[in-house]
Design a protein around this nucleic acid. Structure first.
Lengths: 121, 121
DNA sequence: CAGCATCCTGCGTGATACTG
DNA sequence: CAGTATCACGCAGGATGCTG
């Protein structure tokens, strides 16, 4: 039964796994190696103003979900001052090409003209 | 602000475009050619009981969004009885490999056994 | 057959404040 | 520094009924 569902819709499982606005970007941002909590937070959405982006609550949740999905790994240096690092797992690394494919397609089909048409709200 | 996000992250635009539970599946299901509204609806989530899945409201919205995104094309045979077909556009077809990549990865890493094994690991 | 109108609910997301 | 606690809100998405 589970076989049937996943076989019918791996896409659904994928969507569930990367649900949320930041998961894909987090995994992608980890390409340079392990990153600390604060690094992800400040490096994720540098807006034009460099203003804050993701709230601690949300980032925490995303990281937990990604860890639960097995895409990233959490390393806690247990002592003070608090230090936690996240890095991609094997599974996470194997997922990178998929993100790359998405990015590549997005850059060709969603950039500029397409984006403007879509962002016309 | 939506503009900024799409600009920096094609991934974000991608997520926005395929947001929702059915868009990817709809595009995928159109691989066999044009499909009528009812065909998509009854063929999308044929459960064990074959019960209904997506409501007209939701399906309609998904189709509109996909049309607005340029992934699918809507053909309305204007006369009675109502007949509407949807098919993939060029853009939609170019998007297929991405879905295929997602599916392929999902089948290898998100299938029941893999999920369980990875969760244990 | 292919929708639209209305109501309702859960959840993802953000803002703010606090803590070990 | 790396979170947790609480409140609030918008929106996706389901249910139901009606229509051209």
């Amino acid at each position: 039964m589970a076989k049937a569902s996943t076989r019918a819709c791996p896409v659904a499982a994928f969507q569930k796994m990367i649900s949320g606005k930041y998961k894909l970007r987090i995994v992608w941002d980890l390409k340079h190696g392990p990153r600390r909590y604060g690094e992800i937070r400040s490096g994720l959405l540098r807006g034009a103003t460099g203003s804050a982006e993701i709230t601690p609550r949300v980032l925490s949740r995303e990281l937990k979900a990604l860890t639960a999905s097995g895409l990233i790994d959490r390393k806690d240096f247990v002592e003070v001052p608090p230090k936690v690092e996240h890095r991609r797992t094997r599974k996470g690394k194997s997922f990178v090409p998929v993100i790359a494919a998405i990015r590549e397609w997005g850059e060709r089909n969603l950039s500029e003209t397409a984006v403007l048409a879509d962002a016309a709200e």
